[in-house]
Design a protein around this nucleic acid. Structure first.
Lengths: 102, 102
DNA sequence: CTTTCACATCACCACCCGCTGATACCAGCG
DNA sequence: CGCTGGTATCAGCGGGTGGTGATGTGAAAG
């Protein structure tokens, strides 16, 4: 179906800081300390955003001693990409379908 | 580049009603009246959301007499799809890149 | 010209959301 | 043990955002 895109998943990516986190994680697996250095954000703030990303199913955590590593889940992003591609494709072919004025 | 995804564009898609509008428009070009019927939302509310979609560059308007038709811009969705695909690809290949604990 | 209808804009309010400081929790280390 | 450092959660506050009614505008209809 076309209507299966999850708004919450998109919302999670709609925040600038979260988007930055995602792009950083797309390059390498990092723990919170690294993300604090890279983004300059406070630890609490970052932890909140990471929670959102976690609940959206975008990232996985991997405890490593006292540290917590965050890894992106490529399938989720790939799924999003496919759904947008499907929407684009549908929009392209349906460009001429114009419902009559009532 | 990887960091070029526009948060505002994603935000525009993050709202459930706007997402519904987009999926409807992916099927056929509609005017506001049709969207009111399909979504059950108030005219004012819908007009606000359409404004957001317009400003995000996701839709185009085409006046037709007293009516205003809205059409999706497939290129924008396709671009988003590509960027997410690139992120997914990057995340997949960088799965093992784990920066050392500080 | 006047009315009607489609649509946009404005003003207002309630509510959600992100940021922050304080605090709790847990794993190593001495 | 107790201490230290890395993270998560909590409570609270301010600003941004969505929903709504009133109003403006512009084009067809009569």
């Amino acid at each position: 179906m076309l209507t299966s895109v999850d708004p919450d998943l998109i919302r999670a990516l709609g925040d600038p800081l979260r988007l930055k986190i995602v792009t950083l994680l797309a390059r390498e697996t990092l723990c919170t300390t690294h993300l604090i250095e890279e983004t300059g954000a406070k630890q609490t703030n970052l932890s909140n955003h990471l929670k959102v990303l976690r609940e959206a199913g975008l990232v996985e955590t991997e405890p490593c001693g006292r540290f917590t590593y965050y890894r992106l889940k490529p399938e989720v992003l790939a799924g999003l990409s496919e759904q947008f591609a499907a929407l684009a494709e549908s929009a392209r072919t349906a460009a001429g379908n114009k419902r009559a004025c009532p």
